[in-house]
Computed example of a mutant assay.
Amino acid sequence: MRLTLRRAAAVPAFLLLLAAAACGEEPTLTPADAPSSAAPAVGGQTINIGPDQNRVRAGKVHAIAAQVPAAIAEDGKLTVGFSGEGSPPLVFPATDDTTLIGVETDLAQLVADVLGLEIAPENSSWENLFLGTKSGKYEVVFNNVTVTEERKDTYDFATYRIDQLGWQVIDSSPIKEIGKPADIAGLRVSVDSGTNQEKILLDWDEQNKQAGLKPAEIQYYHKYGDALLALKSGRIQAYFGPNPAIAYNIAVSGGSRIVGTASGAGPDLQGLIAAMTKKDNGLVKPVNEALTTVIGNGKYAEVLARWGLSNEAIPQSQINPPGLPRQGA
């Protein structure tokens, strides 16, 4: 769920993100020598990757703001956890290498606006987002978190995007399609630990073992850039991760392709990405209503279009919907 790209090169091919397919592999994802005017473009519109974002904003809705628990509202801030290691177009550093930007930060801003709170971003590792939310350090997390049944034991969720995963291979790979467990039998594949895609991959591998097929060789890389290096060098044959980040890398770099997509909640359920709060702390309902408000007034659609993710829009926000089944269930 991470990408080490710090700033994007000029990519008219970013249009491919909308089609959720394309080609890219070059792991040198820090083109600091790119001209400052070089920026990604979606549908002919240049994406602003500088620190001055001029974000889409929303107005305060007093009836919703009044529902925010007093302990959270008293400082006038909404502390939002992000993992800003770099995952365009989700969360990544702007050209100042400090300011966090992306679709997740924009949506968090809209929610804070409706709640009448100042957004207070906090940068963290992926794993610490969950620990920080559980401890109360982060009041809400916007970071491409998929709803799962296990996570619902500890956290509450308000959905805001569909969850799509992708399989990435280099252009010269003989692999044409990955769409079912048998397609990964005996392959060297990579995934990030502690993610929903890891759970799906482990389930596929277990199905293959029970069917007498050769197990996959699973390699773990914390950073997407490391996985790309492994892909280029042949240490792995395929990478399994969030489709938006893969498609962005593909559009920027060229040289690889997507050979399959999957729901982040497994084969029987469309995965959903959601804002995550501590269980029963009273915040999920106003967050859900804030999301419903910006979906209804068109601000939500503006944000998704800005980052080329209109195809991941949902018609309404839900609280704690069915999620990725428990492992082994």
Rank of each mutant, 00 (worst) to 15 (best):
77 K>D: 01
129 L>G: 06
242 P>Q: 13
113 D>F: 15
10 A>K: 10
53 Q>D: 07
130 F>I: 05
156 D>F: 04
249 N>Y: 11
251 A>F: 10
320 N>V: 07
150 E>F: 11
181 P>N: 06
295 I>N: 06
83 S>G: 14
71 A>R: 11
4 T>L: 08
44 G>D: 08
90 L>K: 11
18 L>C: 05
166 G>H: 02
65 A>S: 13
170 I>A: 12
260 G>H: 01
62 H>I: 13
308 G>E: 04
157 F>I: 03
306 R>S: 03
82 F>H: 13
124 S>F: 11
215 P>M: 01
133 T>M: 06
245 A>C: 05
189 V>P: 01
324 L>Q: 10
185 A>Q: 02
192 D>L: 00
120 A>N: 15
317 S>K: 05
294 V>K: 08
162 I>K: 07
62 H>N: 14
285 K>W: 00
98 T>Q: 14
192 D>Q: 07
196 N>D: 06
121 P>R: 09
25 E>H: 10
262 A>M: 06
133 T>D: 01
36 S>Y: 08
198 E>I: 01
146 T>V: 14
223 K>I: 10
296 G>I: 02
25 E>S: 15
120 A>P: 04
141 V>W: 08
311 N>C: 00
127 E>N: 12
258 I>E: 02
209 K>Y: 09
100 L>I: 15
183 D>Y: 05
186 G>D: 04
300 Y>K: 09
297 N>P: 08
162 I>N: 02
327 Q>P: 03
144 N>K: 12
134 K>G: 12
98 T>G: 09
176 K>T: 15
48 N>F: 07
85 E>G: 15
213 L>C: 05
206 E>D: 14
164 Q>R: 14
